[in-house]
Design a protein around this nucleic acid. Sequence first.
DNA 1: TGTCAAATGATAATGATTATCAAATTAAAA
DNA 2: TTTTAATTTGATAATCATTATCATTTGACA
Lengths: 159, 159
Amino acid sequence: MEQRIDRIKKQLQSQSYKLTPQREATVRVLLEHEDDHLSAEDVYMLVKEKYPEIGLATVYRTLELLTELKVVDKINFGDGVSRYDLRQEGADHFHHHLVCLECGAVDEIQEDLLGDVEKIVETRWNFHIKDHRLTFHGICHRCHDTSSPGHEKSEVHQK
Amino acid sequence: MEQRIDRIKKQLQSQSYKLTPQREATVRVLLEHEDDHLSAEDVYMLVKEKYPEIGLATVYRTLELLTELKVVDKINFGDGVSRYDLRQEGADHFHHHLVCLECGAVDEIQEDLLGDVEKIVETRWNFHIKDHRLTFHGICHRCHDTSSPGHEKSEVHQK
DNA sequence: TGTCAAATGATAATGATTATCAAATTAAAA
DNA sequence: TTTTAATTTGATAATCATTATCATTTGACA
């Protein structure tokens, strides 16, 4: 984790951004909550515990900057609130989401399931893909009537 | 088109909703602009031409109602504005979107490319899928340097 | 240490959307 | 045709997530 923070710092530095304690505290919170889909407000409340002087506007700005630098991914589930996820290092693909209509839980699929689909899109639609977003809405395994042991995958994170 | 309007009316009727001229004008506008991704404001401006007394709040309410009835799909591209698409009749799948980062155009893929992916998700993650959203961000064929004749597909709609 | 441009925090502003409420309207019953 | 009850409307206030503003502070470099 400290190494990840150092690497992010170097990234900021190499692009002439300043390394402020506010930015560090924000990154730290994101790292500690990698499995959660935090809103800006969530992040603000958590960062405030580490750095009480921080302002909400600064959190927004920091998240926006990290998003531009592709350290963070910003995602919308259509509920009026943006969510921010630290991007997995080396991840060349934005993970997919499973949103449960029953309990509201958000699970992630780290594996990129869109390889074949993207090939089709690039060749048939001549569209040069740079990013994708895939979200499934449905009923998660916890809300199913039946229990199905053995279906849990390590790349699924409960959020 | 008139037939589609009649069918939507019957759908509203069968669920004890009233058939108001405002609702009809809204549906009419959505039908006339099936290829566009209209914001609520867009819809409002267009409906006002047909029915000048209409209020913005009513447009929002109507769009919301039609969304709940699955006549309309509401989509977010993460830019702070919701878009509303009339659902293709009989469509059991929400079309995919290609958003060009250069020119901002939004193309659609009507074909469901997620069949195989959904099978994987349902079985490996034990997630009962009810709906999906797939958006690609990238560079569209118009903004490419090269021209590639023959790649245009009939199910791609320029929006 | 001094300089300077970036970054900050508090707060006002913005814009998309929803809540409120009196009035209007639709649809069904009489 | 009229009445009635419930829904729907339009104007406008309210809400909320987010961004703009501006004086002050701060980080990095010389």
